[in-house]
């Protein structure tokens, strides 16, 4: 599915958040000159297409005490990585989980999982849990802690058709 110009207006209008009112979709409809039914139908279509993952609260990890995180990387047997990747991704403390190509010889890791916790000790503890889950299918792993944010740009959304 390719979002049309109206979908893009809808995404742009909701990018900073939904109005916190009893009938938020009716209010958005009013902004855009659409009907409430059309706004809901378009949001459903975008969600079914995977463009919107969900409409929900984005918690502030730092404010809620999840101040530590680390990018854990794993060398998992090719035949097991998809099955185990699903299980790692489903863990409540993993916020991103991807299979990526190895860069041999220096980089044997093909599974990346971002781990969050209240302290570095807790992140290490959770890393041990993932290692146990992967078992023998994992031949090596590492964790990379960020030491500095050098650039962070919000995702820009083209508003054109």
């Amino acid at each position: 599915m390719i979002p049309d110009a109206t979908d893009r207006r809808l995404l742009a209008a909701t990018a900073s958040g939904l109005p916190l009112t009893p009938a938020p979709f009716a209010e958005i409809a009013g902004w855009l000159g659409l009907s409430e039914d059309e706004v809901i139908a378009r949001l459903r279509g975008l969600q079914e297409a995977g463009i919107i993952r969900r409409i929900a609260a984005a918690p502030n990890h730092y404010a809620l005490g999840m101040t530590a995180n680390g990018m854990s990387v794993w060398d998992v047997a090719d035949e097991a990585v998809d099955r185990l990747g699903e299980r790692v991704g489903a863990l409540p403390f993993v916020s991103h989980c991807y299979r990526r190509p190895r860069a041999l010889p220096g980089w044997p890791y093909n599974l990346f999982a971002m781990i969050h916790g209240s302290s570095r000790d807790e992140v290490q503890q959770k890393r041990t849990e993932i290692a146990a889950l992967l078992g023998d299918a994992c031949r090596g792993h590492d964790i990379l802690y960020s030491t500095r944010i050098l650039k962070k740009t919000g995702m820009r959304l083209a508003e054109g058709g």
């Binding site: 990018a15 958040g17 916190l20 949001l43 463009i51 993952r53 409409i55 984005a58």
Partner: peptide, 22 residues
């Protein structure tokens, strides 16, 4: 919900987009 946003417990309440799907 408005209070949670005001005190910074949440950064926003809205759609989570899949950038690649766009």
């Amino acid at each position: 919900l408005a209070h949670l946003r005001e005190i910074g417990a949440i950064t926003r309440f809205g759609p989570f987009l899949d950038a690649a799907a766009m």
